[in-house]
């Protein structure tokens, strides 16, 4: 797998092609082809409020998308948080969303399972699909939709109940009674989350008594117990210590291939270590999206390079 430490990143000589010759094209038509930055740089164009085209690398065209996002806008009341985001989440791969704080990573992630519906005054525009089924269509049952998507939050949020009940929560609310099935799912999910050996003797003890790292892995177990089609992770390690973070990263590595993962991270090394694809967001726009190696070593846009090398952000 592609791994890289920060030192290497710093030593890299920036390789970019700031052509900046062509004006912005219509965003609807150029989602997957390599684009070019507008005159004066992407960031300035963004701050001027001009539309621009996401720089999407051509490798993505070959991928089978689980989640497709097309020209997606989102408003929190009067303020717009997402501007014409278009991307796809490839099947069986780990995709990382990076970008400075407040650029809309969480907002985009929460849009996928429509958690933003819970916030008053949120308005969306654009298209999103999950395995071809519309997410924002008029007839979509949000509850059924969320059952197809797993989500893990920034802060571990186990429920105030036993470890066992936490893991099988999604089955409980579906009214599954079959004890054998529940036991089996619990064991498989905990094994999948690398937690089985630690908790198999105390499945009935309260989940709130676990350590933070264990709680987060429990949340992952809870998410995969529902056999989700896509797994959303919102900065899953930001509340954890380095050792627990390492365990979660190993876990994400193991889940690769079995699950399609869309992960927000604040941590550049984490993105470079764990993800196959990386998307760079800035002020509500998706700036550049491509294979992690390319984004970190030879991004097409100077702005992406500045960000991944830590020159700003």
């Amino acid at each position: 797998m592609f791994t890289q430490n920060s030192k290497m990143e710093e030593e890299l000589t920036p390789h970019s092609d700031p052509s900046g010759k062509l004006p912005a094209r219509d965003p609807g038509t150029a989602a997957t082809t390599g684009g070019t930055a507008p005159i004066g740089g992407v960031f300035e164009a963004i701050s001027r409020g001009e539309s621009f085209v996401t720089e999407t690398h051509e490798e993505l065209a070959a991928e089978d998308p689980v989640v497709g996002i097309e020209d997606f806008d989102l408003h929190y009341g009067a303020t717009q948080a997402l501007f014409g985001v278009s991307m796809c989440v490839p099947r069986g791969k780990v995709t990382a969303l990076i970008g400075p704080s407040g650029c809309g990573k969480s907002t985009l992630l929460r849009s996928v399972n429509r958690m933003n519906d819970l916030i008053d005054g949120v308005q969306t525009d654009g298209k999103m699909t999950l395995n071809g089924d519309s997410i924002y269509g008029r007839k979509v049952d949000v509850i059924e939709l969320r059952k197809r998507i797993g989500m893990v939050f920034q802060k571990p949020n186990p429920f105030p109940m036993s470890i066992y009940e936490n893991v099988i929560y999604s089955l409980r609310i579906d009214g599954v009674r079959d004890k054998n099935l529940l036991d089996e799912v619990c064991e498989l999910s905990l094994k999948g989350a690398g937690l089985w050996d630690e908790v198999k003797d105390r499945l009935n003890s309260n989940a709130l008594r676990m350590s933070g790292g264990q709680q987060q892995r429990l949340c992952i177990a809870r998410a995969i117990a529902a056999e989700p089609e896509v797994l959303l992770l919102d900065e899953p390690c930001s509340a954890l210590d380095p050792i627990a973070t390492g365990k979660i990263e190993d876990l994400i590595d193991q889940l690769r291939g079995h699950y399609s993962i869309l992960m927000v991270t604040h941590n550049m090394q984490q993105a470079s270590r764990t993800s196959d694809y990386t998307a760079f967001m800035y002020l509500g726009r998706l700036v550049e999206y491509g294979p992690t190696g390319e984004i970190f070593m030879q991004p097409k846009l100077r702005e992406t390079e500045d960000y991944v090398t830590g020159r700003f952000g």
């Binding site: 059924e144 969320r146 998507i149 939050f153 949020n157 105030p160």
Partner: peptide, 21 residues
């Protein structure tokens, strides 16, 4: 609120969230 969100994210309805969490 994070607990409520966790429950909604699992596909629970409002009442299920209230009753169980």
């Amino acid at each position: 609120n994070s607990m409520r969100e966790g429950s909604y994210a699992c596909g629970a309805t409002k009442w299920q969230t209230i009753r169980r969490i």
